[in-house]
Every structure is written in C-alpha cells, then in structure tokens.
C-alpha cells in the first residue's frame, strides 16, 4: 500500500502563472510605449515614469506596514499602476501632483476596497480622472520642448482655440510624434506591446477588438460632420488614449468581466461610451471616463452573461 498515488484535493491542473509573472509581462509589454514616450518627450518623461513607479510601490508598502497587513508589493501590481498612471499624464505635470495621483490610486481606489482583486475600478485610471478633475490646467498642458500645440484629438474636435491649425497627419499619429500624454501618442509602440501580451495569452483579444471596432463603427455613423469619413475614423482610433486604454487598461483582470461574452459586451459598451464622450462631450478625450464608467457595470455584465455549464440545460420557461 505504500505506493499510493499522490492524493490531493482539486484543483488538479494548475497554471504556472502567478500574479507577479502576469504583472511582469504587462510591464514588459509597456516598455515600447514608455521608451517611445521618453524618446518623444525627453528626460522629464523618464523622471516621471520612475518617480511614479517608485511612489506607488512605496505608498503601498507604507500603507500595508502601518495597517498591519501583508506587504504585497512583490506582486508588481503597484508598479504596473505607477507606470500606467505615468503614461497617462503629460510630461509637464508637476511631480507633486503625480505623487498625489499615485497616493489616490493606491490608497483610495485600491487599498481601501481591500487591495488587489477587490478594487472595482482601475486604480491608474481612477487616479487619472482624479487628477484631470482636480488639476485640469496642468493635466491639459501638453506644451513640451518638442511640441507646443494642442493634441491631435483637440484639433480634430475643432473649436476656437485650435482654429487655423493644420489637421494632424495620420502617419504621425500612428507613429506617435505628436503632442499628448507620455505613453499614449504612439499607436505603433502600444501595438507592439499588445501583440506581446496577446501572444503570451496574458490578455484575450475580445475586449480590445470589441472596444475598437464598436468605437470605429460609432465614429463612422455618428461623428458630426464626418459621417463615413474613414480617414477621420482612423485618426480618432490612433489619437488619444484609445489604444493604450483598450489594450492595457480595459483588459485589467480585476475590473473587467470574466465571462467570454461579457468581455465582448464590455468592449462594446466602452466603444459606444468613448464615442459619445469624444463626439458629444466637452472634452476631446473620453477613454478614461468611459473605462471607469464601464468598470462600474462589470458586476451586472457578468451576472447577465454567465455561460451554461457543460451538460446543463437552459432552465425552461415556466408555463403560465
């Protein structure tokens, strides 16, 4: 009897993935966008990226130390939050404001709700919206050494302050040599990182594809004055935070639906909301508000899209 097979309780099939390995992959995937941001905006961008990551990790460790909780900074999720927030602010944002944003992301959005896995909203995006509402003047100051004008999206949106400026070139917007936040300008760099994540199966393509496709359809149909203008649609897709948001923030494991159909529904909701905010809202940008709004709907989406278990029948409707 000594040669019993090893006995254990389920689950029997385990993945070698851990939180920290997934977060490390996300960090690796963000390298192209970060490097391009530093190349585009100079050392100020590099300083903000490093400070933001360091601040997030330090704030999480300090909070957990004083609250007598397990120190969880080794799972790298705080580092991802710090990097994403840095990529979502302009390279001119004062460092103090960036650190306030980091503290808001980690303490208010994440830790007060119970830490990683319990937060209902993407911490980096919550902090970005907090900064955007609090420090609108600084958050929309995109004048760096390299660029002085407004972002391409602002020009596309039109209005008095951008009257007479040349329309942005699609190629520039795709490659990223335009004004904007540190990490959002280059669609190409973001796509390189996104392909890495897709190949390693860290993210599923459902959310980003549904998001971008529904956004494109919305723009084609509803963009005021640009109905069925494909060039305009492509510029809107490459401009602003759409690419970064669709691949790196809408796909956040904690704040996106877990069910396969739910992911598609979530993506479509985000696409429509982003289109609404961009076309009919006051700001040129709407990705971050769309995603945190979508985050709030995730529990409902999951409830509505629970897949049928294998071998089970749909409950028949009771006869009246």
């Amino acid at each position: 009897m000594s040669d019993l097979f090893s006995v254990s309780t389920s689950p029997h099939v385990r993945s070698s993935q851990t939180t920290s390995s997934i977060m490390l992959d996300v960090l690796i995937a963000l390298i192209p966008a970060s490097v391009f941001g530093v190349y585009n905006f100079g050392l100020g961008a590099l300083a903000r990226i490093i400070i933001s990551i360091a601040a997030c990790v330090a704030i999480e460790a300090i909070y957990e130390y004083f609250m007598h909780k397990e120190i969880t900074v080794r799972d790298l999720s705080a580092a991802v939050t710090g990097l994403l927030l840095a990529l979502n602010v302009p390279a001119t944002l004062p460092i103090g404001m960036l650190i306030i944003g980091d503290a808001f992301a980690i303490i208010i959005v994440k830790m007060l709700f119970g830490g990683l896995g319990q937060n209902f909203m993407n911490p980096a995006l919550g902090a970005r919206c907090f900064l955007f509402i609090s420090f609108a003047k600084w958050m929309s100051n995109f004048a760096t050494d390299a660029y002085t004008g407004p972002t391409p999206l602002a020009i596309l949106k039109g209005g008095e302050e951008v009257a007479g400026l040349a329309q942005p070139e699609l190629l520039n917007m795709f490659l990223g040599s335009t004004a904007g936040t540190i990490g959002e300008t280059s669609a190409l760099a973001i796509l390189i990182g996104a392909i890495y994540l897709l190949v390693k199966k860290i993210i599923s393509p459902r959310i980003p594809v549904a998001y971008i496709a529904s956004f494109a359809v919305f723009i084609l149909i509803f963009a005021p004055g640009h109905q069925f203008d494909f060039m305009y649609m492509l510029k809107e897709i490459c401009g602003g935070g759409l690419m970064l948001g669709a691949f790196f923030m809408a796909t956040d494991y904690v704040t996106s639906p877990i069910t396969p159909n739910g992911k598609i529904v979530f993506g479509i909701i985000l696409g429509i909301l982003t289109g609404l905010f961009r076309m009919f809202g006051a700001n040129a940008e709407g990705v971050s508000f769309a995603i945190i709004f979508g985050n709030l709907l995730v529990p409902l989406i999951e409830k509505a899209t629970v897949p049928k278990s294998f071998g089970k029948k749909k409950p028949e409707k009771e006869a009246k």
């Binding site: 103090g96 404001m97 306030i100 208010i108 907090f130 509402i133 609090s134 420090f135 609108a136 003047k137 600084w138």
Partner: peptide, 16 residues
Amino acid sequence: LMPPVSIMVLAPGAFF
C-alpha cells in the same frame, strides 16, 4: 505655493 485639489469642492470630494 500649492495648487488646491479642486475635486474636493466638487461632488466626489464630498464623499471622500
């Protein structure tokens, strides 16, 4: 000296 955090006088600030 220090720019005020204007979200605090808006609706979300009340909850915080």
